[in-house]
Design a protein around this nucleic acid. Structure first.
Length: 596
RNA sequence: GACUUGGUAGCUCAGCUGGAUAGAGCAUCAGCCUUCUAAGCUGAGGGUCAUUGGUUCGAAUCCAAUCCAGGUCACCA
């Protein structure tokens, strides 16, 4: 149990016995004591003043004395300033905590709870390569999955590949028209990039055709409908749904190029999946449900044959679920897949890592599932994250104004190589070790950069400035780890550390204590990150821990500590810090080097 | 227009279940490498927490209104 929880219970118990009435956690507040005051944790007494009609000093004195008396192993002393009761935690409490947990590489992780969740993330379209926004999605999804695992949940990582639909046909048509049979082999390009080029080309051609039609006197709407390239694309979608062999063949070919490209990228960035769904397999499943929905009268058919659901009673609009030509829309297959996931895996929760531009869509999806009486409807959770914007505005694949994922990754790794070479600290590394180190640092910088921000918030990326390697960054944390490891390599063979008993003759120094206090908070941070589905909690925690440790490190020598007891104490602090940094970074998919 | 999310230092972001003098990184300036890795440490300057009003012992945090910005309201996904 965390120190804050123990304190909370202690105050509750003491208050009850002192005042002969019952209290709840909401009647008072516990904070970490501000550095300018003496003490470690603070009970804010103001809210009790009214209910008890006693002066804060009186309540504080009673409470402080009782806590120190009843829990001598936790609290050593207290002081009261205004309405704040500041409690000092006994050094022995911290030392016992260190002794018990410093070598535990699973510190903070929970035992299995039996809860089973699916995290769906990444979900690429096979008409274009991954960009910076997809990276945020991938890192988030992966990290949230790991964080939930650490919180004792069984997690299935899944991915739905959007491999069919009008947008896929756009790339295919443009390739047919303009590519002259170009392949990844013939152009020496990555398959996803090649296909993406033709997606951009489609939109250019489409724009031109529309402009021409408008010039010849058509309205904008007419022009958009009648542009030949769009008509051809729509026909291709119908042909695809009918299984026309040459369309299917082209589709298979181009998709296989894209998959080869994606595999390379996924491997590089460390995305993995336990289950991959293909929309081409799931969209028909949705059609059955549309039929059932019609029978149940949840859906209705319009005169032209299209099928709809009326959500106006819920404050939303009417929503189409099947086109008049019988083809599916996006939401159709989502309904089918939601049910299939539930039936296949018996999951307690289904998490969708999808951008906040789809908030409305996800709301509709959940509502439709509820109306259909599907058992999984309540378990759908949309982990809605903000877009990554450039300083110049939004990224748009259609217009090619995106920060390409592969390029950015390469750039990050190249920068880490350049910096490492400039510092020249690892000259004895083999070529392989160096390559691995550049990956660790470059990817670490990038993942940390994208994960340190609250997922819900839109974030801004400035392509002019490269991602930093100093300060609040992945490499900063990695560096702290490498420095600790360097010390431990030197000292750990030592017998005196193995048979460590830390009988302290002098009190803990402020910086020693500060690090230990933060170490103690890791399980709380982990829990909060899980509850909020928010890796940035971990990023912030791990950065602050590293920062505090660095201050401690420059101020106090570990190897040449004043006494053998101090040395043991500090080695334990260092060991535990390294373990937690490693563990926390791992939850974000960031590796930490032994040396850098 | 309706719904929705946000507005905190020059920039990027924490803090938001109300508590002590609002934090961090970058950038700027000034220091620290014969002692465990300087990708580090110490310090300085930098703020009308969008605005106005309300709630109260106390508001960046809660409530209301206004202004500004993003998103959605597609037979795109």
């Amino acid at each position: 149990m965390s120190i804050v929880n123990q304190l909370q219970l202690g105050v509750l118990k003491s208050l009850t016995s002192l005042q002969n009435q019952s209290f709840s956690e909401k009647d008072f507040q516990i904070n970490q004591t501000k550095p300018e005051f003496e003490g470690d944790y603070t009970v804010v007494l103001f809210s009790l003043v009214k209910t008890l009609s006693l002066y804060p000093e009186v309540i504080g004195n009673q409470l402080g004395e009782k806590l120190v008396n009843d829990f001598p192993e936790i609290f050593s002393s207290f002081n009261i300033i205004k309405g704040f009761l500041n409690l000092t935690v006994a050094d022995n409490y911290w030392i016992a905590l260190l002794k018990k947990n410093h070598a535990d590489i699973c510190y903070g992780k929970k035992a299995l709870t039996g809860k089973k969740v699916m995290v769906e993330y990444s979900s690429p379209n096979t008409n274009k390569p991954l960009h910076l926004g997809h990276l945020r999605n991938n890192f988030l999804g992966w990290s949230v999955a790991e964080i939930l695992k650490a919180n004792g949940q069984e997690v299935i990582k899944s991915c739905i590949v959007n491999d069919r639909g009008i947008h896929i046909c756009k790339s295919m048509i443009a390739w047919q028209l303009y590519a002259n049979g170009a392949t990844p082999q013939s152009t020496h390009s990555k398959g996803d990039h090649l296909v993406g080029e033709y997606y951009v080309k489609f939109n250019e051609a489409y724009k031109e055709q529309v402009a021409e039609l408008i010039a010849s006197g058509k309205t904008k709407e007419e022009a958009e409908k009648e542009a030949p390239i769009m008509k051809a694309t729509q026909q291709m979608l119908v042909d695809w749904e009918e299984g026309k062999p040459e369309v299917i063949e082209l589709w298979n070919t181009m998709n296989s190029w894209v998959y080869a490209g994606f595999d390379t990228t996924y491997q590089k960035i460390g995305s993995d999946f336990d289950k991959t769904y293909f929309e081409s397999n799931t969209y028909l499943l949705g059609k059955d449900i549309v039929q059932q929905g019609l029978d149940k009268k949840v859906f209705f058919k319009k005169e032209d044959g299209s099928i709809w659901i009326d959500l106006t009673a819920d404050g939303l609009d009417e929503k189409i679920v099947q086109r008049k030509d019988g083809t599916s829309v996006y939401i159709t297959q989502d309904i089918g897949l939601a049910l299939q996931k539930y039936e296949q895996f018996k999951i307690d929760q289904s998490i969708y890592v999808i951008g906040n531009e789809q908030n409305y869509h996800m709301k509709v999806l959940q509502l439709i599932c509820k109306k259909l009486g599907m058992p999984n409807a309540e378990n759908i959770f949309h982990l809605s994250y903000g877009m990554v914007e450039l300083t110049s505005g939004k990224m748009k694949s259609r217009e090619g104004t995106v920060v390409d994922a592969d390029e950015l990754v390469d750039e990050m790794i190249a920068t880490s190589q350049k910096l490492t070479e400039e510092l020249g600290k690892v000259k004895d590394f083999t070529a392989e070790e160096l390559k691995d180190l550049y990956d660790i640092i470059g990817l670490g910088a990038m993942k940390f950069y994208l994960l340190r921000v609250d997922p819900k918030k839109t974030m801004v990326f400035n392509p002019e400035e490269s991602i930093d390697f100093h300060g609040f960054t992945g490499p900063f944390v990695q560096y702290t780890h490498a420095r600790i490891k360097s010390i431990l390599r030197k000292e750990l063979g030592n017998e005196e550390f193995k048979n460590s008993s830390i009988e302290l003759k002098s009190p803990l120094l402020p910086l020693e204590k500060e690090v230990i206090i933060q170490l103690e908070q890791y399980p709380t941070a982990l829990e909060e990150a899980g509850k909020e589905h928010n890796p940035s909690v971990i990023a912030n925690y791990v950065f602050n821990l590293a920062k505090t440790f660095n201050s401690f490190y420059t101020e106090h020598s570990i190897g040449n500590a004043e006494t053998i007891e101090k040395k043991n104490l500090r080695l334990q602090i260092a060991t535990m810090t390294a373990n937690i940094i490693k563990s926390g970074m791992q939850l974000m998919g960031i590796r930490v080097p032994e040396r850098m």
